[in-house]
Design a protein around this nucleic acid. Structure first.
Length: 583
RNA sequence: CGGGCUGUAGCGCAGCCUGGCUAGCGCACUUGCUUGGGGUGCAAGAGGUCGCAGGUUCAAAUCCUGUCAGCCCGACCA
């Protein structure tokens, strides 16, 4: 492609409302333009990168045994009613009502396609002989984000590769899952992304039923915990801590007398700290949950965040939810915000850190009052476990410096961009949409499913976000909009242009993606634009060089160019490109 | 959905508080010359319903009310 025939609107200045690097640079480099909040047009360069990512994904999905289909973005609302996800999606689901004759048709723009694909399979797959199968598509998804932001990282319309596996057994599911997991690793590696697979909340199948693929990035919206020495990594919702139960007790000598203090209208940790001039880590936060309908007090240190999944598992409950005001009043005798373990009228479950707080501050189970110098073992007591330790649990979100659950090291908190997710779904959708198969004995079973998503735009944005310097973007060879840019320094010098044309034609013939910067602009402009866009290799042909029989080849990542004989340049560059695409 | 900020040429901004001639600057754009290895220099041009609607006033980019859009922080995110 010739620059003058393409459409590459670069910008010298930063757009004022682009904050994060990926948004700023993709705008400046002429890859994208905003249409409205959360919706972007892909210009030629951006589209080329997007296509390169989809091609890699397609190759690897096919290699992993996936079968490509294309479903519709328009989906009948009825399917979401049958799986009860209208409620789950809420405002995220983009609803459309249209009239056809005298009828009103209610549909949605698909935010994901479990329903559509499961319905398809339900209608056309009946026998165990037809399974397992993994179907996938690369298609536009729509989610009404309450707050689109960060440019391309979070949009309401985006490209997603979504795959769905259908199996007759957990073994088959695990095989499909592993195949997808490995394909994802290959895809992201080929795309030149640094990524971390982390454990995510696993849902119905349990165990290692879900992994997220995260790009470590300061602006990432997700928090993940990664062990400093072993390969353990998990998102905040999922991460276990390596903390253990203990039997240490506060020495009686250190216990100060428990006192009740009036704390009018101070029902939050923050407010109580302000009134009593204490720190959150000295407080016991008492949350009243209903576990399968039965109230239970959950004790967490004041500066920690409760983790509902951990609490649910520790209680062995099917469902848990925060208790309503009435229940709280019944159990504690106080309005919301003044609960505490001393004298509470329900079961208590505590996080590991709670009994270690000596002379703690906590609610008095009485309106507008808190207790100070509350000591475990004197003022309230946890049951003892069989080994003589206090019966405590891991009930809070993991935090930086918590011990790793897998080794002796510590966890570190990193931010990440979620670029892929693999998930063992189980039979939720196949049951709801009646997707079953007959086994050898003609017994019907629900098909066991898995789903696997990749945010294609996020591959591009994630690279832009993490691979750039002061001059602009730095693309890996596999995703770069063009692999090579040819810059003839003066388009009015016929010898230079003739040589540049030759390079252009021959590199194209050698299978290289090459952009010919044939603009009649000064060298500096071409260099600045080439750096801004981030082509991996820049070929410079100038009057002096051509006269001396030399061509200049510069890698985006290196500070100095290399010089080669004019006659060898095409072959050398073609080899460089080929080598850089090998993974 | 709560809190904050911003809408003036394609982009970045000034002017607004304290209303007043033809609304200005830099970059980009057009034409001519110039220059030709890191955003050349000179000259001449084109480009605006000052987000939109209403109000106050002799007079509104400027003051008031409403509204729309965008951005940031937080909540939310199968």
């Amino acid at each position: 492609m010739r620059w003058t025939k393409s459409f590459i609107p670069t910008m010298k200045e930063d757009p004022s409302d682009a904050e994060v690097p990926s948004h700023r640079l993709m705008l400046r480099a002429g890859l994208i333009r905003q249409v409205m909040a959360g919706a972007y047009t892909y210009l030629p360069l951006g589209l080329r990168s997007l296509h390169k990512a989809t091609n890699i994904i397609r190759e690897e999905m096919d290699r992993a045994g996936g079968v490509e289909i294309q479903m519709t973005a328009l989906t009948p609302i009825d399917l979401y009613e049958r799986t009860d996800r209208i409620k789950a999606f809420g405002n995220v689901l983009m609803n459309i009502h249209v009239s056809r004759g005298d009828r009103r048709v209610h549909m949605a723009l698909g935010p994901t396609h479990e329903e559509v694909v499961t319905d398809l399979v339900a209608k056309h797959i009946n026998s165990y002989r037809q399974l397992p199968i993994t179907l996938y598509q690369i298609q536009t998804k729509f989610r009404n984000e309450e707050r689109p932001r960060f440019g391309i990282l979070r949009t309401s319309e985006f490209l997603m590769k979504d795959a769905y596996s259908f199996s007759t057994s957990l073994e088959q599911l695990n095989e499909a899952y592993t195949a997808m997991y490995e394909a994802y690793c290959r895809i992201f590696t080929r795309c030149g992304l640094s990524f971390i697979p982390v454990e995510a909340e696993s849902g119905p199948i349990g165990g290692d039923g879900s992994h997220e693929f995260m790009i470590p990035a300061g602006n990432g919206e997700d928090s993940i915990l990664k062990c400093n020495s072993c390969n353990y990594g998990a998102n905040v919702e999922r991460a276990d801590t390596g903390r253990k139960r203990s039997n240490t007790a506060t020495a009686s000598a250190d216990m100060k007398p428990m006192t009740e203090i009036a704390t009018p209208n101070a029902g939050s940790i923050e407010a109580v700290c302000k009134v009593l001039k204490c720190k959150p880590h000295r407080m016991i936060k008492t949350l009243i949950f209903k576990a399968d309908g039965k109230p239970v007090a959950v004790l967490i240190r004041g500066d920690h965040d409760a983790n509902e999944n951990k609490i649910r598992r520790a209680l062995g409950a099917k469902t848990i939810e925060l208790a309503d005001e009435h229940t709280i009043l019944t159990v504690t005798g106080a309005p919301v915000g003044f609960a505490g373990p001393v004298g509470i009228k329900c079961d208590i479950i505590a996080d590991h850190d709670v009994p270690l707080i000596a002379n703690a501050v906590t609610g008095a189970n009485k309106g507008d009052a808190h207790l100070v110098n509350v000591c475990h073992g004197r003022d309230w007591t946890l049951p003892l476990a069989a080994d003589g330790t206090w019966q405590t649990f891991d009930l809070r979100n993991a935090a930086a410096d918590d011990p790793c659950p897998k080794c002796d090291s510590k966890l570190g908190l990193v931010h990440g961009i979620e670029v892929g997710h693999v998930f063992k779904l189980g039979t939720k959708y196949s049951v709801a949409l009646d997707a079953g198969y007959l086994d050898e004995k003609e017994t019907k079973h629900p098909i066991i499913m898995g789903c696997y998503g990749i945010g294609v735009n996020r591959i591009i944005a994630g690279l832009a976000e993490t691979c750039h310097d002061d001059n602009g973007l730095i693309w890996p060879m596999t995703i770069a909009p063009y692999e090579v840019v040819i810059c003839p320094l003066n388009v009015n010098e016929t010898e230079v242009m003739a040589e540049a044309e030759r390079y252009y034609v021959e590199l194209k013939a050698a299978g290289v993606d090459v952009l010919f910067d044939d603009r009649d602009v000064r060298a500096g402009v071409k260099f600045k634009d080439a750096d801004l866009i981030g082509f991996p290799i820049r070929i410079v042909l100038g009057g002096k060089g051509v006269a001396a029989g030399e061509v200049e080849v510069k890698h985006r990542t290196k500070s100095d160019p290399e010089k080669y004989p004019l006659a060898d340049g095409v072959r050398i560059v073609a080899d460089m490109v080929r080598a850089a695409k090998q993974v």
